[in-house]
Design a protein around this nucleic acid. Structure first.
Lengths: 237, 237
DNA sequence: ACCTGAACACCGTTCAAGT
DNA sequence: ACCTGAACACCGTTCAAGT
């Protein structure tokens, strides 16, 4: 009874499409990390040979672009009414920042991709890589008193801020969730130049070791954002 | 007359060593980009088979770590006398920032590697990835009036700042110098979703296209650094 | 219309063997 | 001591062929 409807062959196979391929690629990267993602393995996960993917995706590079797009388009922020209370430009930027941050924390293995893939154009600065989002950003700010130039300047400053903070944060998260392959910072298997013994040559690092390892990411993010907003306020004519 | 001294076989081959291999890898990435770097091609460039490299380098991943280390160790900054004029913590951070930036601009293709490789420890935050450098940073600041905690906080803020700004800057540079393979933003061969026509759906981006594409990186970097320093000043007890 | 088998060129890496 | 030939397992990708 091998019917033509997806039956019990271990798992019912979703019909292939660009969307499910990319969705599954994101899941794969989340679970096993980017270096593990292979056309062949992704096919296997989808119950299909690797070559089938090429009907829907233009090769591995295009697939990764798709991953970045999909993850990035999950961010749709309604600028809302400029005159509503708590909805000024500061509130807007704060909400946007929080949303991007939560994206980075949800997909720490994908975020480096968002951060480093070559953007298609200079007006798509990582990690704000969707046209919708950038358009929305610029409109939100110009409607709230920013001149064109000021809005563009703010856009640049804002993206640099997000990139720096979130890339570092997702990297330190990604290390914890890293693929089972690399032991990273395990007590055994130490690299020659970086053992505790060698750390003796750097007394200050050693003294501050605990503080350096401590995680204050949320507080730091918010504090830095606060200062960025103050800085951007100077752009208001 | 095939002598044993490196004679005229096209090019005198430097004797192999870990150092020359890594140096050549850096040059290779600078010229052709990271994805092009292959053990086999690197061997070829050194006049040797790929397997020979494994005597000196522990595989490709280790090679890339070596690349990051070498490039990063080119940064040795003398903190100098805390009491000398123009040598306060602000001057120190300014010099350090400039130095890291010039590194990023000299090696725009290598910088993403510096930015995204998993650091060996939480106290090595990209792009400040050398123990010497971090030690020097912390000493410089604590000698200049920062408490331990303040120095660590400053270290975090400073690295985020550098990472965000320089990764974006090096990416936009790297695109220009990109490998001959990818046409990127060419007039022909446009991706479906991002033609000028489609840009019509984003009127603000379109209106600000020129401003968005304009490059003000140096001024922006300096301005943002200035504000960071002001912000760090608040940490002084 | 959708998937696959076979094939190609190219990887990283190991190891016994050459000099 | 230093390099290499041969081999292995694994890539991405194409295309004619199957259903």
């Amino acid at each position: 009874m091998t019917s033509s409807t997806p039956s019990v062959e271990g798992r019912a196979r979703r019909p292939l499409s660009r969307a499910v391929i990319i969705t599954e690629a994101v899941a794969f990267i989340d679970e096993r990390g980017l270096p593990e993602l292979t056309m062949r393995r992704l096919g296997q996960r989808l119950g299909v040979e690797a070559m089938s993917l090429y009907r829907y995706v233009d090769g591995r590079e295009a697939l990764l672009d798709g991953v970045v797009s999909q993850v990035t388009e999950g961010l749709h922020l309604d600028p809302g009414d400029p005159d509503a209370p708590g909805n000024g430009w500061q509130g807007y930027l704060q909400r946007l920042a929080t949303e991007v941050r939560s994206l980075a924390l949800r997909h720490p293995q994908v975020f480096p991709l968002v951060a480093t893939r070559h953007p298609a154009a200079p007006w798509l600065r990582p990690p704000l890589r969707s046209l919708e989002l950038v358009e929305s950003f610029l409109v939100a700010l110009t409607r709230r008193g920013f001149s064109d130039t000021a809005a563009v300047t703010a856009y640049r400053a804002f993206s640099s801020f997000l990139l720096g903070h979130l890339l570092l944060e997702s990297a330190s998260m990604g290390a914890a969730t890293a693929p089972a392959g690399e032991p990273l910072a395990e007590p055994e298997h130490r690299e020659v130049g970086e053992t505790d013994g060698e750390l003796a040559a750097y007394p200050t690092i050693r003294r501050l070791e605990h503080q350096l390892a401590a995680d204050h990411s949320t507080a730091e993010f918010e504090e830095a954002l606060e200062h960025l907003l103050q800085r951007l306020e100077l752009l208001l004519g």
